Deep mutational scan, measured.
Amino acid sequence: MAASAHGSVWGPLRLGIPGLCCRRPPLGLYARMRRLPGPEVSGRSVAAASGPGAWGTDHYCLELLRKRDYEGYLCSLLLPAESRSSVFALRAFNVELAQVKDSVSEKTIGLMRMQFWKKTVEDIYCDNPPHQPVAIELWKAVKRHNLTKRWLMKIVDEREKNLDDKAYRNIKELENYAENTQSSLLYLTLEILGIKDLHADHAASHIGKAQGIVTCLRATPYHGSRRKVFLPMDICMLHGVSQEDFLRRNQDKNVRDVIYDIASQAHLHLKHARSFHKTVPVKAFPAFLQTVSLEDFLKKIQRVDFDIFHPSLQQKNTLLPLYLYIQSWRKTY
C-alpha cells in the first residue's frame, strides 16, 4: 500500500487533545456564526451592495467568503475584532481572482478581468477605488493598515499566469505559485494584525505553500471532471502515471504514490512551519489557523491510503469550527 511504503514521513496525529474535556472553552465561534445575517447573495444585490440601503460592502465580502471560501471565513471569524473586516476584504479579493479561471470560457475574457483587478489595485493606492464592493472594502483595508501593494499585485499576476490550462511542470513550480498567492495572502494578513517579524514571515511562507499544494490536491477530482489535470508532471512521470490515469480515476498503487509524494511535500512544509513556532510572536498565530484544515485533509487522505478520489475527501468536517476554536484558544498553530 502507498501509505505503508512511505509511512515514515507522517508524524503522530495532533488533533487529539488529552485532558481537553476537563476545561470548557468559552463560547465564541458558534455564537458569532449565529449572529451573522444570512440572506442569499443575488446578482441584483451584488450590483447594489455598495449603494445606500443595501447590506453594505462589508456584508457582501463576508457573504462571498462564506459561500466560496468557507474555511477562510471560519478562520477570519476568530481574528481580533479590529482586524476582521480587513481580512474579510482581503480574502474576498482572493476569491474574486480565484473564480475568474473557472467562470470564463475564453482566456481573453479572463485576461480582461485580471486587467480590471490590476487597475483596481492601482486605483486603490491612488484613493480612487471603483464602485465595486470588494474594491471598496480592500481600499478601506489598505488605508487602515498601510498594506504593501507588492503582495496584492503578486496575487493578481500569479492568478493571471495561471489562466493557462497547463499542469505544473514540477513541484517547485506549484510551490512558486502557492508562494505568490497563498503566502502573499498571509503576509498581508500579518500586516493587518500589525506583525512585522521575520520568523512570522518564514512560517507564512511555508504554510502558504502547504495551502497551495493541498488546494491543488483537493481540486483534482473537480478538475478531472472537466478533463483537466494540474498535478506536477515530474512526480507523475517518476511513477509512470499519465494524465489519462487521473481522468479515468485510476486507483492503482502508482497513482496513489503520486498523491503521496505531493501530500508529503505539504506535510513537510507544515511540519517545518511549526518547528520554530517558539520564535514566532503569539500575536501572529491567528493568521495561521488554516493549519487546522490543512492537517485535517492530510490526515483524511492518509486514512484512505492516498486515494484522491475517495468520497470521504469531499465531505465537510462538521467539527472544523470546534477544532479551529480550540486551536485559537490554545494559542498555537
Rank of each mutant, 00 (worst) to 15 (best):
V95W: 05
R113K: 15
L186K: 02
K67F: 06
N162S: 12
K196M: 09
A200G: 04
S103F: 13
V229L: 13
F306K: 01
G212V: 02
E71D: 11
P129R: 10
L74V: 14
L138Y: 00
D257V: 03
E173Q: 10
H272P: 01
A266H: 01
K143L: 05
M237K: 06
S76I: 05
L152P: 00
L64H: 08
A273T: 02
C236H: 02
D234I: 00
P133T: 08
Y333W: 05
H272V: 08
P52H: 13
A284V: 07
H59Y: 10
K67V: 08
R249M: 08
A48R: 15
I262W: 00
I308G: 00
Q115R: 10
V292L: 13
V241K: 01
S105Y: 13
H202E: 05
H269E: 02
I308T: 00
T215K: 05
A49D: 06
A178C: 15
K154I: 04
A89P: 01
S205F: 03
K149N: 04
F285D: 02
P281R: 01
A273C: 04
E96W: 03
A284Q: 00
R68S: 11
K140I: 02
L238N: 14
T291A: 08
G110K: 08
Q265R: 13
R91S: 05
L320F: 07
Y177V: 08
R227K: 12
L298D: 00
C75F: 09
V46E: 05
H310M: 00
L152G: 00
T120M: 10
K101S: 15
A263F: 04
I155L: 11
N94G: 05
D305Q: 08
P129Y: 09
K228T: 14
L320E: 04
T181S: 11
S183N: 03
M237V: 10
Y325E: 04
K154D: 06
A167M: 14
S264M: 08
H223P: 03
H145G: 05
T148N: 15
A47D: 04
A287P: 01
E137Y: 03
K172T: 15
E295C: 10
Q315A: 11
N317D: 15
R303W: 07
D123W: 05
E71V: 10
L268S: 14
Q290K: 05
L152S: 00
E96P: 00
L238E: 15
W329G: 04
G51R: 09
K196N: 07
T148D: 05
V104A: 14
L231K: 00
I259N: 00
Q99A: 15
S103V: 13
L65R: 02
G208L: 00
K253I: 13
D261R: 08
E158Q: 13
A48D: 10
S275R: 11
A273Y: 01
S275Q: 10
D58V: 09
L190V: 02
E175S: 04
Y260R: 07
A287R: 01
E82H: 15
E295D: 11
W151T: 05
P52G: 11
D201V: 05
W329D: 02
I171F: 11
S242E: 03
H199Y: 11
I195E: 04
L111G: 15
I171V: 14
R274S: 03
P129L: 08
A219D: 05
A141R: 01
I235S: 07
L64A: 13
A167C: 11
R113E: 05
P133S: 08
W117A: 05
V87P: 02
L188K: 00
V156S: 03
T120Y: 11
H239P: 01
D123C: 07
L188V: 07
K228Y: 11
D69S: 02
R84S: 05
F88I: 14
D164N: 13
V282K: 10
K149A: 06
M112T: 15
Q132N: 12
S76A: 12
R256K: 13
R159H: 05
N128A: 15
F246D: 03
W151D: 02
A273N: 00
S184W: 00
A266Y: 00
E63S: 15
V142C: 11
W117P: 01
D234E: 12
A48G: 13
I124Q: 00
V258Y: 02
R84P: 02
F230D: 09
P80Y: 02
N176R: 13
L152D: 01
H145Y: 15
T332L: 15
G53K: 14
F276H: 06
L231S: 00
S242Y: 03
K101I: 12
P311Y: 07
C236S: 06
R84V: 09
K271Y: 09
G208W: 02
K107V: 10
S312Y: 10
S242M: 06
D58F: 11
K119W: 03
K331Q: 13
P129F: 10
G194R: 08
R150P: 06
L78A: 11
N180K: 10
D197M: 04
K101M: 14
G194E: 07
D197G: 03
R303F: 09
D307Y: 03
S83M: 13
Y60G: 05
K140S: 04
E158N: 10
W329H: 09
S183M: 01
M153Q: 14
P311D: 11
R144T: 10
V156C: 08
L62T: 12
I308L: 13
I192W: 01
A48M: 15
W151I: 06
N146D: 13
R66L: 06
E106M: 08
S86E: 05
R274N: 01
R249H: 13
R303G: 07
K299G: 09
L174D: 02
E244T: 05
K149I: 04
V258L: 07
L163N: 05
I235N: 05
A284L: 01
K143Y: 06
G240C: 11
E82C: 15
D69E: 07
Q251F: 13
S50R: 08
I235W: 04
N162W: 13
L62H: 14
L77A: 04
L138A: 00
P80K: 07
H269K: 01
N254R: 15
F276Q: 07
Q302M: 07
D296F: 08
Y260W: 15
A273Q: 00
G56E: 15
L147E: 00
L289S: 07
L289T: 08
M114T: 14
R256P: 03
V258P: 02
I235T: 12
L198V: 08
F230Q: 10
D252T: 15
S264T: 09
N317L: 07
K196E: 07
H267G: 07
T215W: 04
Y187V: 02
D127R: 06
P130H: 07
G72S: 12
D245I: 06
I207N: 01
K140T: 04
Q251H: 12
L174W: 01
H277F: 06
L313Y: 00
I171C: 09
A204S: 05
R68M: 14
L64I: 14
F230G: 05
H272E: 11
K316Q: 12
C61H: 06
R84F: 04
D307I: 03
L97T: 11
P221C: 13
L198Q: 07
Y70K: 08
Y125V: 03
Y323A: 14
L324P: 00
L231I: 14
D305M: 03
K140A: 03
V280F: 03
L111W: 14
R249S: 12
K209H: 03
R169I: 10
G51C: 14
E106R: 08
F230T: 11
R274H: 05
F309C: 07
T220Y: 03
V104T: 15
Y333E: 01
V142G: 03
K140L: 03
R68K: 15
K143N: 08
K228I: 12
R91E: 03
D102C: 10
M233H: 07
E175L: 06
P80Q: 05
D123A: 11
I192N: 02
K196T: 09
V304E: 05
D197N: 13
F88H: 10
P133V: 07
Y125Q: 03
Y73A: 03
D307G: 00
W117Y: 09
K154A: 06
K154T: 06
L152E: 01
Q182M: 11
G72Y: 08
A92S: 14
V241C: 14
H269S: 01
K107Q: 14
L270W: 01
I207H: 02
L322R: 02
L62F: 12
L79Q: 11
P80T: 08
Y70C: 06
V280D: 02
W329I: 09
K107C: 11
E71R: 02
V229M: 10
P311H: 09
S85Q: 13
S85R: 10
P133H: 15
R248S: 06
S184N: 12
F246I: 15
Q182V: 15
P221G: 13
E96S: 13
H206N: 03
N250E: 11
A49Q: 14
V134K: 01
A48Q: 15
S50D: 05
V121M: 07
V304K: 04
Q99H: 14
E244Y: 04
